[in-house]
Simulated scan of single mutants.
Amino acid sequence: MSLSAVMGISLSGMQAQQTRATATANNVANAMTPGYDRLETTFSSEATGGVRASVSPTGDKTFDEMSNVDLAQEAVALAESEIGFKANASVWETGADMWDVLMSIKRD
């Protein structure tokens, strides 16, 4: 696997976690909206490597006077998204450092 492929995979991971964080923020913003159906993020692997995030309503039962958003669940989802983003960012930074080393070797 090439270095640029690894960096591309980590970039797709960061983008997927950003999508999840956006859906979570939307859920929190609409927690008090009557009848709101929370959004759920699902991840799938891509054939070329990496990950794709898709967002859709859960389809769970909602009520006329409240939504089906659990703020504790959303806090956990946001924490998981942050950890996933940081892990992918670390891979990206390591790849960038390796790229710099390769370029300095090539110049010398």
Rank of each mutant, 00 (worst) to 15 (best):
M1S: 12
L3V: 05
L3C: 05
L3N: 09
L3A: 08
L3E: 04
M7F: 06
G8H: 04
I9Y: 01
I9G: 03
L11C: 01
L11K: 11
L11N: 02
S12M: 03
G13F: 02
M14D: 08
Q15E: 03
A16L: 07
T19F: 09
T19I: 07
T19L: 09
A21F: 06
A21R: 06
T24M: 00
A25L: 07
A25K: 02
N26A: 12
N27E: 01
N27Y: 01
V28K: 05
A29T: 05
A31F: 06
M32W: 01
M32S: 12
T33A: 14
T33Q: 14
G35C: 13
Y36I: 02
L39E: 08
E40A: 15
F43R: 08
F43I: 00
F43W: 05
S44R: 12
S45D: 13
E46G: 04
E46M: 08
G50Y: 10
S54D: 11
S54N: 13
V55L: 05
P57R: 15
T58S: 15
G59A: 10
D60N: 15
K61A: 13
K61V: 10
E65K: 14
S67R: 12
D70A: 02
D70R: 12
L71H: 11
L71S: 13
A72K: 14
A72M: 13
Q73K: 14
Q73H: 12
A75L: 08
L78V: 03
A79H: 03
E80Q: 13
S81H: 10
I83R: 14
G84M: 06
F85G: 04
K86S: 15
N88R: 10
A89Y: 12
V91Y: 09
V91K: 03
E93C: 00
T94F: 10
G95Y: 06
D97R: 15
M98T: 03
M98L: 13
W99F: 15
V101R: 11
M103D: 10
S104P: 00
I105Q: 11
K106C: 00
K106L: 10
R107C: 00
R107W: 01
D108N: 11
